[in-house]
Design a binder for these strands. Structure first.
Lengths: 134, 134
DNA sequence: ATAATCCCTATAGTTAACTCTAGGTCAAGT
DNA sequence: ACTTGACCTAGAGTTAACTATAGGGATTAT
């Protein structure tokens, strides 16, 4: 089973432009072509693109993802590098989660702050808060 | 107690350039100046900057944050808008957390995958995985 | 009083990740 | 045969959020 670039774009929720950009940047050296040059995506290509999206969502830049893709095609000699990379990504995501949770706490505090102010009809209700407005 | 721009930059872990950029974009209309034009930051200004950083970390663009700052200086008539905005930000952060948790699950799976492969000395150990390599 | 160090503005440059346009090929339908 | 619509490449344009530079003023240390 193969898919056209627009089918893949729809499936992965990104644009045809973005997919061609990824290809140009070396993220998809494995995608085959028809004799006339049209890309033919296999299921395994879509799986790989999902990993690429995952790495992107950890905040990894495209150039670094390209490095990973290159390691993949170099075979077992790069297993250690790839493992280390995923450990690093795991740490990065953990840091992001910690950060986001802090953000969430502050946002929740502000929701409370404005709910109280709305009920009182004025922000002045918080003027004497020990903890401060922020 | 007041602080110079470089003191604030150090405290909030951002650059002097960034702070001046925020000011230029209208995020800090409340910061006062000496007669010769040097910015003097108060503690409350630093608190406000922390909120700005919080909003930024929810993915809110600077132009929208500026809108919030404007609401703040318009007083109690904008309490509802500000409350709604924070509810929206809360939803955005919840979505980001859900997304990051999905990412984390995939990363963890990959960590396992590479750990097993490293122990076996080859990625071929996964060739017959039901779930697939990705 | 002069050098160093901080501050300022205005404006130009940078970077990543697309996004779009122009100009062209190709396969299918009528 | 010809139109339609999806595909292609090369390359220009976009956007956000800084980042840096140039040129100049004010304050502090020697």
């Amino acid at each position: 089973m193969t898919y056209s670039i627009s089918e893949v774009a729809k499936e992965l929720n990104l644009t045809v432009y973005a997919l061609r950009y990824y290809d140009k940047e070396g993220l998809m050296p494995f995608v085959e072509r028809t004799p006339s040059g049209t890309r033919l995506f296999k299921d395994s290509d879509i799986d790989a693109l999902k990993i690429i999206q995952c790495l992107k969502s950890t905040g990894m830049p495209i150039k670094d993802i390209k490095g990973f893709i290159e390691w993949c095609s170099e075979g077992d000699s790069t297993l250690q590098q790839r493992y280390d990379m995923f450990l690093e990504r795991k740490a990065a995501v953990e840091a992001q989660l910690a950060e986001l949770n802090k953000t969430m706490a502050l946002i929740n505090h502000k929701c409370d702050y404005y709910m109280t102010a709305l009920n009182a009809g004025t922000e002045n209700i918080h003027k004497n808060d020990k903890i401060g407005n922020f």
